[in-house]
Design a protein around this nucleic acid. Sequence first.
DNA 1: TATGAATGAGGGTTCATTCAT
DNA 2: CATGAATGAACCCTCATTCAT
Lengths: 206, 206, 206, 206
Amino acid sequence: MGKLEINKKQKKDALLESAFSLFTSKGIQKTSISDIVEKSGVAKGTFYLYFKDKYDIRNMLISHKASRLFHNADQALMDENIDNITERIIFLADHIINQLCENKVLLSFISKNLSWGIFKSALITPSDDSDINFYNIYQKLIYNAECQFKDPEIMVFMLIELISSTCYSSILYDEPVPIDKLKPYLFDSIRDIINRHKTEDNIIND
Amino acid sequence: MGKLEINKKQKKDALLESAFSLFTSKGIQKTSISDIVEKSGVAKGTFYLYFKDKYDIRNMLISHKASRLFHNADQALMDENIDNITERIIFLADHIINQLCENKVLLSFISKNLSWGIFKSALITPSDDSDINFYNIYQKLIYNAECQFKDPEIMVFMLIELISSTCYSSILYDEPVPIDKLKPYLFDSIRDIINRHKTEDNIIND
Amino acid sequence: MGKLEINKKQKKDALLESAFSLFTSKGIQKTSISDIVEKSGVAKGTFYLYFKDKYDIRNMLISHKASRLFHNADQALMDENIDNITERIIFLADHIINQLCENKVLLSFISKNLSWGIFKSALITPSDDSDINFYNIYQKLIYNAECQFKDPEIMVFMLIELISSTCYSSILYDEPVPIDKLKPYLFDSIRDIINRHKTEDNIIND
Amino acid sequence: MGKLEINKKQKKDALLESAFSLFTSKGIQKTSISDIVEKSGVAKGTFYLYFKDKYDIRNMLISHKASRLFHNADQALMDENIDNITERIIFLADHIINQLCENKVLLSFISKNLSWGIFKSALITPSDDSDINFYNIYQKLIYNAECQFKDPEIMVFMLIELISSTCYSSILYDEPVPIDKLKPYLFDSIRDIINRHKTEDNIIND
DNA sequence: TATGAATGAGGGTTCATTCAT
DNA sequence: CATGAATGAACCCTCATTCAT
């Protein structure tokens, strides 16, 4: 990579990092492009060399940050030896929840956006610097499962919506209870949802 | 109520209705106070006699509109004769979902805001023109139930988060499936969540 | 007129005068709205209370200034006693040319714009503060003439285009000759054009 | 011409052609140097190796395009056998008008600029790639005429101003009438102007 | 010669808020 | 109470120009 290319990457990364920092500290609406370039130490025009507008940089950030969450969880799953699909999903959920507990600003940033719409648009399209995306993980899980599902897409949809919306309030505000108190109930519901989608000859009582 | 007071109420109502219409048609961010007062036919300064800013009027609207949803569902429930608490909750959920299907702009307005945080701030505080609020309905349901629950607040929290976040995508975008296809799965999950919270001596198989 | 209305008129007039001064001294392209409001001593937002943009204020100025030119010439014509339509037109042309000689910045401002297109859009629509417009003068001239014309609109068109485009260069740059040297030729051509449009039974040798 | 010189000429020509295309399609004001270099497929800095700024390239274009108009008309005139100076001028005017009718974007580009000022600065100075210029044609016409003129420069000035300003409106907007309806009147006026400039012993009645 | 990333001043425009009427 | 003209800071974005490569 030439000197110039390194310089460009540094500029873009500086803008992404500054934007993330500002978005999470003062909110997207209150963050201006002036704020971002000032924090990045580049000129205003430089922003427009790399991004269309504020929402362009936001989408890139969400895509990037969210795919990292899933990638990390998936990596950790590989080190475990869990043969049960239900427990594999629980493991992934738990791992992601734990990452979000450690990184609350990230949670508040992607939180409400980490729902179904974003999966289709952001996670399927691989981010610049890696081949990881949510669909690889999803397919590996479902197709390698020891049992069959009916409407697996609905199942995943319900899991993601339930997990993301309950965790947001619980992790960030301890409302209605802290995440550790919520988890048992949440994992029970995850199991219920999965079981409801198993085809009849595979029902496993847990 | 004197002529002057009626006049004041008319102005405030006009502002609320105009704001709702604009918020739902062009979004809150893109709606300016100029827009609101112009549509209301009042002067700009008048806005500040009734509301602090744009977000003040938004909160009043959410509170008002959401409590109407629950109130309508509760009224309809009274006409039915359902003795089973689980099915009473299902009935309420179904009724609210149907209202939102009929009124998609309302859904997109309160949608993501119709989560736990808003209940505490908006629904508990009774709105100006009625005594209805969510807590009345909640208490009537839980305390008159034929069985006992452990952690009922967590149960309600999970129900609301699951319902509101899945319906948003399903009703508005038919993603991942239209609401009619989602409902069976959703109601099953609601039943599961409720059953998980019943104290052991009350378990009812459904 | 209330105090407030006087104040408003003063603001608008200040903006118009400042804009005219700047347009004529540094050109329309180089004049910014910041320049105009600064010279007017009003806030930037105030500009947008009265005008849509820079070209809106330009059009108002052209319309206003051009109609004044014709009005002045027409007033002067009334004091004369010229019964010949050709010489009445020459008198008007001469008077307007003289006004433009006295006011070269005005010439350079409306100059190239003072052509056919502008008559239709700007001069027919009466300006705010007077009923004068070009069409009144035009009709008075043509319909009260002692003779008839074929295609009078083409005649007026050719006269205006010839006069305005030749005077621009001659008055402002003495190119190819100063206006006083040009006038005899110009007036001869005006007479020729008018004669060409007289219906046959009215030809007057001059 | 070396390979390098050919390359340079290609770059400059690409810039000129791109600029002309953009100037005529979106206007000079709205065309940026970025637009020009992008369309040309050269780098931004390269523009400044050949032109000072946007107005520099515009002037070169006007000069080049206008001289082609006159050159074409003059070439066509040579194929004719018109011994009358008046009709030779009419022929040239007609030919140029016809070229402009065929190429309205060219008309709108040079239109209002095709007046006296531009002849001195643009047409007298021969363009890079040809010896043609307006003054050759002018001198050939006047000095080879079968009669003498007084103030021939004023005559040409008036002809050009009359023709260019009336044609602009008539060809582009059919205002006040389409060019075909205007031509008879215009050519009559051209004849009148020429006749007025003939020295007395040469007057030809037409 | 040629490049194109970087600049940053300056453009037009919006709009929440104030306050004299 | 109600008005709406006035404000002016702040916004986003463009683009001519430079200069290290």
